[in-house]
Deep mutational scan, measured.
Amino acid sequence: KKKYVIKVYFEDTGKEVEIEAESKEEALEAAKRLAEELGLKIKKVEIYP
């Protein structure tokens, strides 16, 4: 089964997080949740198959 690796870059902090997920949708949801939890804004998202 294919996994996606999503790199999320946050504004202000210069922080980046990698998330593995089964689908792009799932990964983007996780990225949004994470940003909310951390109180950060997402600057850029890169998706690698």
Rank of each mutant, 00 (worst) to 15 (best):
L28W: 15
I19L: 14
L34Y: 13
E37S: 10
T13K: 10
V17D: 02
E36H: 13
K2N: 13
K2A: 11
L34I: 07
I19H: 01
E36S: 12
Y9N: 03
E11A: 06
E18C: 07
V45L: 03
E11N: 10
K41A: 09
Y4N: 06
K2T: 13
T13C: 01
E25D: 14
E26Y: 09
G39M: 04
A27T: 02
T13F: 11
R33K: 14
K41H: 12
A31C: 09
K15S: 08
A30I: 14
F10K: 00
S23V: 03
A31W: 02
A31Y: 02
T13Q: 08
K15A: 06
E11L: 10
A21E: 06
Y4C: 07
E29N: 10
E11T: 04
L40P: 01
K15Y: 13
E29W: 06
R33M: 08
A27N: 00
T13Y: 14
K1A: 04
G14T: 11
A31G: 05
K32H: 15
A31P: 01
K41R: 11
E29L: 15
E26N: 09
L28I: 14
I47E: 11
Y4G: 02
G14K: 10
G39I: 02
Y48K: 06
K24F: 11
V45M: 13
K32V: 12
A35V: 09
K24T: 15
R33P: 00
K43N: 10
Y4H: 13
K43R: 14
A30Y: 10
L40N: 05
K7E: 02
Y48R: 08
E37G: 08
K1L: 09
T13V: 10
E18K: 03
V5R: 10
E18D: 13
A35T: 03
Y48E: 04
P49N: 10
E18H: 09
Y4I: 15
A31H: 00
G14Q: 11
E29V: 13
I42Y: 01
K3C: 03
K32G: 05
K1D: 15
A35H: 02
K41V: 14
E36Y: 15
E25F: 08
E26D: 12
K7F: 06
K43L: 10
G39V: 02
I19W: 12
K7Y: 03
E18T: 09
E22K: 03
V8A: 01
E16Y: 13
L28Y: 13
I42L: 05
L34P: 00
L40H: 09
E20Q: 15
K44L: 09
K32M: 15
V8N: 00
K1H: 10
S23Q: 02
E22G: 11
E22T: 06
A35M: 05
L38I: 13
G14R: 03
L40I: 10
E20S: 06
V17K: 04
A30P: 00
Y4F: 10
E29H: 13
V45G: 01
K24R: 08
Y4T: 14
L40A: 09
G39R: 05
E46K: 05
L38M: 13
E37P: 00
K41D: 07
P49L: 09
E36W: 13
E29K: 13
Y48H: 14
A30C: 03
P49T: 06
R33Y: 07
E37L: 05
K24V: 15
K2I: 12
A27F: 02
S23Y: 03
L28G: 08
E20H: 12
P49Y: 11
D12Q: 09
K3S: 15
L28H: 12
E16Q: 06
S23P: 00
E29Y: 09
Y48S: 07
A27K: 00
L40C: 03
K43C: 04
V5G: 05
I47V: 06
K43E: 14
K7S: 04
V17L: 12
I19A: 03
I47S: 12
K2P: 14
V17Q: 02
E18G: 04
I47P: 04
Y48D: 06
K24I: 15
A27C: 05
V8P: 00
E11C: 04
A35I: 04
L34H: 07
L28S: 07
K41P: 12
I6C: 02
E16L: 06
E20M: 11
E36G: 15
K3P: 12
A27D: 00
K15P: 08
D12P: 07
F10V: 01
K1N: 15
I6R: 00
A30S: 14
L28Q: 12
V17N: 02
K3F: 06
K41T: 13
K24E: 14
E20F: 04
L38K: 05
K15C: 01
K24G: 13
L34N: 02
I19P: 00
K43D: 14
L40K: 06
P49E: 15
R33I: 09
K43S: 08
I19S: 01
K43H: 13
V45E: 01
A31E: 00
K44H: 15
G39P: 00
K1M: 15
K7N: 09
V5A: 09
K41Y: 04
V8K: 00
Y4S: 09
K3L: 14
G14W: 15
K2Y: 02
E26I: 04
I19T: 03
E22L: 05
I42D: 00
F10W: 11
K7D: 02
E11V: 11
